[in-house]
């Protein structure tokens, strides 16, 4: 194992500091007893956290986001796994087209997608529907799952599948007992990335959510355009905590370097 020199370590430290500092500031501000976003802050208080939990609209928005992210990530995974397996191992007409199509939502700005979907959903008469909001999320998060599952599917030893076949495994058993467990880190990592992306998504959701289906980020955005108070910091701190907890869980179960870097 080679060690980093002092210069590289210093640089890495700066990058980490640059990325972490805003999060740390938000979390610190969330504990202020004062009425404004102030740092340094006098004393320590949970009043703004209490304020969050007293806001039924925020609680509702949180549940909306949670259910939305969960169902959208799951549906995206159900689409991405067969797609990734097909793209990684078969050559068929239109393969590159499908591969590009699946990955294209990453390139198209969410703003553009949002406007387009707003118009489309209005034409279809499904504006404000939770199902269609979820499908819109599926479109933008599927690429994340696909990329991770694709990497996993390309990385596995195909001869293990051949071995299972020759040992008598049928197609379903083969997928269920051999292929899926082998690509599971990619699938779980993809699901998680999709979940986080859906949970954080604001640009597209602003266009296609209604008051009844408002997500937490949209609720926060709307709230922030009206007033800035430390409650926003408290909500942000809670979101950060939830995300961090999910990441730690994933690290425990599979290891983050495997999911994000692809190490085995």
């Amino acid at each position: 194992m080679s060690r980093n020199g002092p210069l590289a370590l210093g640089f890495h430290g700066l990058v980490v500091l640059f990325m972490m500092a805003p999060l740390v500031v938000v979390c610190l501000v969330a504990f202020t007893p004062e009425n404004t976003l102030s740092l340094p802050t006098q004393g320590f208080s949970l009043r703004w956290f209490r304020a969050v939990f007293e806001r039924a609209d925020f609680i509702q928005a949180f549940y909306n986001s949670l259910i939305l992210a969960f169902s959208a990530a799951t549906l995206a995974t159900l689409i991405a796994v067969p797609a990734a397996l097909a793209i990684s191992r078969y050559s068929f007409p239109g393969r590159d087209f499908f591969s590009a199509l699946f990955l294209s939502p990453i390139i198209i700005p969410h703003l553009v997608l949002g406007v387009a979907m707003l118009r489309l959903f209005a034409l279809m008469g499904v504006n404000g529907s939770f199902t269609w909001l979820m499908l819109a999320h599926v479109v933008i998060i599927t690429p994340y799952v696909l990329r991770l599952v694709l990497a996993a599917a390309i990385g596995i030893d195909r001869s293990a599948e051949q071995a299972a076949e020759s040992l008598g495994a049928g197609r379903f058993t083969l997928f269920r007992q051999i292929t899926l467990p082998m690509i599971l880190p990619g699938v779980a990592g993809g699901w998680l990335l999709a979940f986080i992306n859906s949970f954080d998504e604001v640009t597209l959701s602003i266009f296609v959510s209604s008051p009844a289906t408002q997500t937490l980020p949209v609720r926060m955005y709307v709230y922030a355009t009206e007033s800035i108070d430390p409650m926003m910091a408290a909500v942000s701190a809670l979101v950060i905590a939830l995300t961090a907890a999910t990441m730690i869980l994933l690290d425990r179960v599979y290891g983050l370097d495997r999911v994000l870097v692809g190490k085995h």
Binding site: D157, S159, A160, Q162, A163, A164, E165, S166, L167, G168, A169, G170, I178, P181, M182
Partner: peptide, 15 residues
Amino acid sequence: ASRGLGVVFQSYALF
């Protein structure tokens, strides 16, 4: 699957 042959692969192909 229906041939029932035993195959040992170069990469071992263990699960």
